[in-house]
Design a binder for these strands. Structure first.
Lengths: 206, 206
DNA sequence: TAGATTGTTAATCGATTAACAATC
DNA sequence: TAGATTGTTAATCGATTAACAATC
């Protein structure tokens, strides 16, 4: 099943919009406009209206967008009306920080498993997870029907770990290893690599 | 001073190219082509040639690009022929992982300071850094002429911390707090928020 | 009603790709 | 020489913005 053809760049902005309006909601605000939201995010009002119009009509002329309603709609569109269980692969510093991170739950995700291949770490507790042997990973992920994983291994293990995850049925991978990984059609990968962000900024630095 | 007008989207791809060819170099490869690099990264060969041609002529017809030479050139373009000192703000799980992260050094950066406002953390050692009181931050950053910082505080402190960093002369901020921050002209900000990446993927998840 | 703001269309702008002469 | 691949131009494609009728 392929989604109706909405550009990936639009999909990528929806979580940004959602984050901003959820913050507005927290601050007690009830209504916003494409103008206000755009100013807060540094994007044009027209772009916000255009993006949202791909999915329906969520605003009212003259008044703008009801924050609670728009927030519900965005969460529905992004499939965030459920909480997705996640596996973490790698129990080093990054895996550790991810296991402790409190910010996922409110935003539709929770880490429920963490794996490593280091016998010194297996069985240890990190947050409320117990580090499992990576040799158990495939079985555990299949049994729990896990669809989302975060890879926090060294670069040289990222591809083999990815292959195992895909084999076990994972469909979305957030890769912290500083290397491009390849996956079959139908599996999504996003990358987090602080050094590439820093390097992009250092271009402007002198 | 403004750089000659090269699109930010091009600058953003250079670190990706650099990462890939440095890996090729590690694997002992001497030469590559826009075709090979493109296939590895999932971008078109034409795009790679076009991007690189913004900065000079780095290849040879018939043979391609010398990896060592291209790598040097990219590092020069990105101002990575020096190591940039960085400050970390926030000594929670994220700050801790950043302080321990071994991957920066090879890529042009090193964390040399970490700050927190929790008296229970101040004075403690994280990796080879000692957590300093955030009230000392401005002075310390100015004295060391630090230009790059990573913000790893809760969202509600990110803006005030940013203001202090900018005031102290920081020009590039990597923000891990899940909130948009505003900075004056001439200061760059990049964002890392795992939840937005996950939410982008979950759109495609059912 | 008057003012504000939406959703949408058409115009503009910018980025990507295809094609190819040059040349190693 | 023949084959490969660059750097660059022109064509295509896609994304953003401006403008405005509709309407709350």
């Amino acid at each position: 099943m392929t989604k109706r053809d909405i550009p990936g760049i639009v999909i990528g902005r929806l979580p940004i919009y959602l984050r901003a309006i959820q913050r507005m909601a927290q601050e007690g605000q009830r209504v916003t406009s494409s103008k206000e939201l755009g100013e807060r995010l540094g994007v044009s009002a027209a772009q916000i209206r255009k993006d949202l119009s791909q999915f329906g009509e969520f605003g009212k002329q003259g008044t703008g967008y009801n924050i609670k309603y728009l927030s519900e709609q965005l969460r529905r569109i992004l499939n965030l009306d459920v909480v997705w269980d996640m596996a973490i692969v790698g129990a080093g510093d990054v895996g550790n920080a991810l296991a402790h991170y409190q910010g996922f739950r409110d935003r539709g995700f929770q880490a429920t498993m963490i794996f490593d291949n280091d016998s010194g770490k297996i069985g240890k507790k990190i947050g409320n997870l117990i580090v499992q042997d990576i040799s158990e990973m495939s079985k555990a992920i299949q049994q729990a029907s896990i669809k989302v994983a975060m890879v926090a291994t060294p670069a040289n293990h990222a591809q083999e770990v990815t292959d195992q995850l895909v084999e076990a049925g994972v469909k979305a991978i957030l890769n912290y290893a500083p290397i491009q990984i390849s996956v079959p059609e139908g599996v999504r990968v996003e990358y987090i690599d602080p050094a590439t962000h820093l390097q992009k900024m250092s271009y402007y630095l002198k």
